[in-house]
Design a protein around this nucleic acid. Structure first.
Lengths: 207, 207
DNA sequence: TCTATTTTAGACCAAATGTACTAATTTTTT
DNA sequence: AAAAAATTAGTACATTTGGTCTAAAATAGA
């Protein structure tokens, strides 16, 4: 029966989102399905294993929608669309970003994986920036490390907008997601050239 | 004996920083002092009360060093110095920012207080920006909401640079603090006028 | 000094959790 | 159909936790 594993993941996913990772025990997950807690342990020896499996789902989702955006040739548009779709996925799995540091502390292996993927994302951003500079959408860097700093800002914003929204933003999910995707893009705004800004305005009207 | 209360706060402070709020029980704090756990409960009925008291300490520290910076007339310099000193305090009480969402979830009253203080900080930033624009250090806003977005970026960075550093940055505390204070200021960089950039270069050389 | 108050400790309880072990049941394979 | 493997449940245990109740000890005040 593969169904049990699936039920466990779906129930854990829901409870994690509702109550936070720290408040959900293996026994609670089992009781909510319901199966015996020993059966749950048979499939996942501990909470970390469940979280790691759910993280795999996040990665698969992210990969899937990345291919979806592949067609968009316009740099800024592609980035914006990617941010909106990506933030939607993060919201669906919000427990992961809301308890990110808790999770990373508890599972060094998952942390290693997470850090490596973020490095890939940083490279991707660097390439996109280079291309946007080439296309005269972004200004030339006027000091070394400028883009590295921007990428760091992007990373922190991407990792913690949800945590911040949990505290400050009580709007409906769709509004929160849309606004934060816009704000992420906003990090690029001051670096836009005149041409870049024209594209930007057009893009924002469309959204 | 006021000494016990103080011992509790100091021990809790240390353990929270070392292990994270979620991993430290009242009994552990009591055992580490050592006093009986009932004695600890006599002074603080629960973990939230301890955290609230430590939060008061953070506010007092922040207030103290804010007065210290009062003398600096140069807008950017004052901001930078304020960031560095403030980030140092946050590092000293890093458990609070590392487990921020956990803490806010557990204590709605503290959350309310935290949000209100952040609103004050936002106002302060708005005033500083206005002044910097007036002094031709920052460009004029070229669309409404531009500064509001910047302030939101600043807030999220201020709230979560420590969490991000816990995952990504294994350098020594002093380096981490200095670099992130620099990066916070970096959010202003692309908005600087030519005059602003000159001041900036000078400021960075001095640091 | 004597009394009242504050502080401290110990015993105890009920609930929850992770974990190990055993056995029954179901599914798959031969 | 029989055997083997996978899945599920039940039980029991040691630990930890927050919490209550009681009483001793220390401190402060009259």
């Amino acid at each position: 029966m593969k169904k049990t594993k699936e039920k466990i993941l779906r129930t854990a996913h829901r409870l994690f989102n509702e109550q936070g990772v720290a408040q959900v025990s293996l026994r609670q997950i089992a009781a909510a399905i319901p199966i015996s807690h020993t059966n749950l342990i048979y499939h996942f020896p501990n909470q970390q294993a469940i979280i790691a499996a759910l993280h795999e789902e996040i990665l698969a989702e992210a990969l899937r929608l990345n291919q979806e955006v592949q067609g968009e040739s316009h740099v800024l548009k592609a980035l914006f669309q990617s941010a909106r779709l990506g933030f939607k996925v993060l919201y669906d799995y919000r427990f992961f970003m809301l308890d990110l540091n808790l999770i990373m502390r508890a599972d060094p292996v998952l942390k290693e994986k997470f850090v490596q993927i973020e490095q890939l994302r940083a490279q991707m951003y660097q390439e996109v920036i280079d291309r946007a500079v080439q296309e005269k959408l972004l200004r030339e860097a006027d000091h070394p490390g400028m883009w590295a700093d921007l990428i760091q800002h992007i990373r922190i914003y991407s990792d913690y907008w949800l945590a911040s929204a949990e505290i400050y933003d009580s709007r409906k999910p769709a509004a929160v997601i849309a606004d934060h995707a816009r704000l992420l893009m906003g990090l690029f705004y001051p670096y836009l050239t005149r041409k870049g800004k024209e594209d930007w305005e057009e893009m924002m009207k469309a959204a």
